[in-house]
């Protein structure tokens, strides 16, 4: 299922308010983009938003796009309701990270970077997030679900489905 391609849930005024929170300072472009992305439930920066940011910061759209496409945290495409981050760097990779990715692939029937049909889930393999001592783990937003077993993963998914973590 295709979702609407836009950061529909925040209005232009809200976006401008975020930009102004940083005094439309071009130096704070990254902070602004991250804030915009996290405020939108779609979890990405679309072109219209990039243009808006560029115009307010007095830089070209190209500068903004270069950042959006460079920094791994910034996304160019809509994200799922729950984006699960799995670390695939060596310390985690050799501490059982595969248990998690394998389990997610099984339960959700999606590959890395894909979204489930209901738009609820997606997982990314990313480099170290500084939780190496808790591997295997899943990180959703700032929350780390640590030292997971396969059963823990299954439980987490059903909990998320059931809406047990509304803050995430």
């Amino acid at each position: 299922m295709e979702r609407v391609i836009s950061m529909a849930n925040i209005t232009t005024d809200e976006k401008i308010a975020i930009i102004n929170r940083y005094h439309a300072n071009p130096e704070q472009a990254l902070n602004i983009l991250i804030d915009l992305q996290f405020t939108s439930s779609d979890g990405y920066i679309d072109q219209a938003t990039a243009q808006l940011v560029a115009a307010h910061l007095g830089v070209t759209e190209t500068r903004i796009y270069e950042m959006v496409s460079f920094y791994a945290i910034l996304k160019e495409a809509p994200q799922a309701r729950y984006v699960m981050k799995i670390c695939n760097s060596a310390p985690c990779h050799f501490s059982g990270e595969q248990i998690v990715s394998h389990e997610l692939e099984e339960i959700l029937d999606i590959q890395e970077g894909q979204m489930t049909h209901d738009g609820l889930f997606m997982y990314h393999s990313i480099p170290c997030v500084g939780a190496c001592a808790q591997a295997p783990f899943i990180k959703i937003k700032d929350r780390v679900f640590a030292n997971l077993t396969a059963d823990d993963v299954a439980q987490l998914i059903s909990d998320l489905r059931a809406g047990r973590y509304p803050e995430l």
């Binding site: 704070q28 990254l30 902070n31 991250i34 460079f70 920094y71 791994a72 945290i73 910034l74 990313i126």
Partner: peptide, 9 residues
Amino acid sequence: RIISGAGAY
């Protein structure tokens, strides 16, 4: 001032 990185080693 705090500046946020965004996932680039």
